[in-house]
Simulated scan of single mutants.
Amino acid sequence: MNNDIKRTDPRRPFIVTAAGLKRITLGEIGNGAMLQFSHGAHKDAVRPRRTTQPATRALLVAAHTDRGSLDDHARQALAAAALLADGATEVVLIAFGEFKDDAAALGADRYIELPGFDRRNFAPDEEVRALTACVAHFAPVRIFMPDNATGDGDLGRRYAARADASIATQVVELDAGHVASYAQAGRAMASRDLPDVVLLAANAVDARLPFVGAGEAVSAQGIVPAAKASVFVDLGIEEMDAAQVALEEADFIVSAGNGVSDIAAFEALAGTLGAAIGASRVAVDDGKFTRDKQIGATGKTVEASVYIAFGISGAVQHLQGIKDCRHVIAVNLDASAPIAKRANLTIVADTQETIKALTDAATAARAARAGGTPVVQTASVAEGVAA
């Protein structure tokens, strides 16, 4: 039996990269050029401008920001437009909310920041009105948006309905000529020509670009009309204790492994940070946490923006449970622990000292923001940091 045969991954037809369509196969590492570009030694390399030609047409990307930044899904939508644009086409980003990212590095040639449209506020009619105004001004050939449940997917559908525009949703396959989505519960593919509005599924595009855009800021004044009172009543967001949030829905998780001995201090840190609590299988088996806190292949799969792992070595089952987390921070005395390969940042330090230092620092920051001036003795965790 030949074990070198590579099999097509049935869950993903292909992914769009700067090198073209990348067919995903089991056992294949990936595109060598893109992997080389992602290494630390190449991150600071000067990337060329995608195009310097005068623009004769535009592709528009619209997405909400989260605390001033685009999330991975939104960056993939922006990359899709940049990868499909030719030399005479500019990529225009409409950022709903405060925007602090480097637009050029993300592939945008021009961008408009709309800080009045925060993701936490519900005003869909005014967002459609603003998007319609931007479309009228830039006259884009096509609009790209992430198809998510946090505002962008809803906005894209509302715009298409109001503008009577063609639309494709949950797009998992696209190139310069067509788009495709899963059909019949994933057993088939539905394909069509490129529509007016493309709502991309997550991970259909590689957001790492070997080029940059012009990154020119454009004032919304004179393009986007002044906002009116929305016909929708925004009831706001109900705040709740982070401990009550289901792990699958938590945006910030601190997780304990066998290396955490003081559970009370760990739980105090979670309360101070406002984070949900998770645990490794070993910690659950030892009776330190209930089974519903277990993260991994035999527990919960999480998608937190920030995941801090204290004293977790990183068995393959646990890594499977955190594969969709955006930023992973590992605190471990062993710099060669498996979780260090997955982590964006590894702190090589004593777990208990780090927990105490973080608790003190977070407490001091909260008090300072409230106007207090507490005196805090912070423990040293300067054992070294490995990226």
Rank of each mutant, 00 (worst) to 15 (best):
Thr51Arg: 09
Asp193Val: 15
Ala105Ser: 11
Pro140His: 07
Gln377Pro: 06
Met1Trp: 13
Gly97Ala: 07
Glu249Asp: 14
Arg187Pro: 11
Gln244Phe: 07
Arg119Asn: 08
Ala41Asn: 12
Ala386Pro: 01
Arg366Thr: 09
Gln53Trp: 04
His137Ala: 15
Arg50Pro: 01
Arg291Pro: 07
Leu114Arg: 06
Glu248Val: 15
Phe232Glu: 08
Gln36Pro: 03
Ala304Asn: 05
Ile223Cys: 01
Gly153Ile: 06
Val92Asp: 00
Leu199Arg: 12
Val284Tyr: 03
Ala149Glu: 11
Arg67Ala: 11
Leu269Lys: 06
Phe96Gln: 08
Pro374Thr: 15
Ala161Ile: 14
His178Ile: 13
Leu155Gly: 12
Ala95Tyr: 04
His318Cys: 01
Arg129Gly: 02
Asp285Met: 13
Asp324Lys: 12
Tyr111Val: 10
His178Gln: 15
His73Thr: 10
Ala33Gln: 08
Phe232Thr: 03
Ala276Ser: 09
Val198Tyr: 01
Phe252Gln: 03
Asp4Tyr: 12
Leu269Thr: 04
Glu248Tyr: 07
Arg192Gln: 15
Leu209His: 05
Ile5Asp: 07
Arg67Lys: 13
Gly278Asp: 00
Leu26Lys: 08
Ala105Cys: 06
Gln377Asn: 06
Leu345Asp: 03
Met189Ala: 10
Ala387Ile: 10
Ile5Gly: 01
Asp118Cys: 15
Gln377Val: 11
Glu98Asn: 07
Ala265Leu: 08
Asp286Leu: 06
His318Arg: 00
Asp262Gly: 01
Asn344Trp: 02
Val376His: 05
Thr169Pro: 07
Ile223Arg: 02
Ser181Leu: 13
